[in-house]
Amino acid sequence: SHFELRVGTITLHFDNISEELAEELEKLAKNGVHADEIRRWWEEWLK
């Protein structure tokens, strides 16, 4: 499923992401983690 995450002024787009993972990314964003860090985390997870 597709997921969009708003982090400050940036909107990150994720394809084929589980609800659980989407929730984890939302938690990171709410805790003030920068969009670049979240994207890096996601790319690492995909490997």
Rank of each mutant, 00 (worst) to 15 (best):
F14S: 01
E44F: 06
I10K: 03
I38K: 01
L46G: 09
L28P: 00
I38Q: 01
F3G: 02
L12S: 00
N16F: 09
R6S: 15
E20A: 12
K47E: 13
E26M: 14
D15A: 11
L46T: 09
N31H: 11
E19S: 13
S18C: 03
T11P: 00
L25D: 01
D36K: 05
W45Y: 15
E44S: 09
R39G: 05
E44D: 12
L46R: 06
A35G: 04
A22P: 01
E44H: 10
S18E: 03
I17P: 03
T9R: 03
S1I: 15
E4R: 02
K47P: 06
T9H: 13
R40S: 12
R6P: 06
W41Q: 10
K27H: 09
E23M: 14
E43Y: 09
R6W: 12
W42C: 07
N31T: 14
W41N: 05
G32Q: 05
H13R: 10
D36P: 05
R39Q: 14
W42P: 00
W45M: 09
R40T: 11
E43F: 09
E44I: 08
A22S: 06
V33L: 15
L25G: 00
E26F: 11
V33H: 13
L25Y: 02
V7W: 05
A29W: 04
E43I: 10
V33R: 11
S1D: 09
R40M: 11
E20S: 11
E37C: 04
T9M: 11
E20T: 10
H13S: 08
R39T: 12
V7L: 09
K30H: 11
L46Q: 12
R6I: 15
D15Q: 10
S18N: 08
A22D: 01
W45S: 08
A35Y: 09
K27R: 11
L5A: 00
E26Q: 14
W42T: 04
H2T: 07
H13W: 11
E26G: 09
K27I: 11
L25S: 00
S18Q: 04
V33E: 08
V33S: 11
L46Y: 09
E20G: 10
S1V: 15
W45R: 04
W41Y: 14
K47W: 11
V7H: 01
E37Y: 09
E24A: 12
F3W: 12
L46A: 09
D15I: 14
E37F: 06
V7G: 01
G32C: 02
K27G: 12
E20L: 06
V7T: 02
E37L: 08
L21T: 10
H34R: 11
K30D: 08
N31Q: 13
G8N: 04
R40Y: 08
L28E: 01
F14C: 00
S1E: 09
R40V: 07
A22K: 15
A29Y: 03
L5S: 00
I10R: 01
I38P: 01
H13V: 15
T11V: 15
I17Q: 01
K47Q: 13
G32S: 05
W41I: 13
E44N: 10
N16Y: 09
T9A: 14
V7K: 01
H2G: 07
K47T: 11
L5V: 07
L21C: 08
D36L: 08
L12R: 00
L25Q: 00
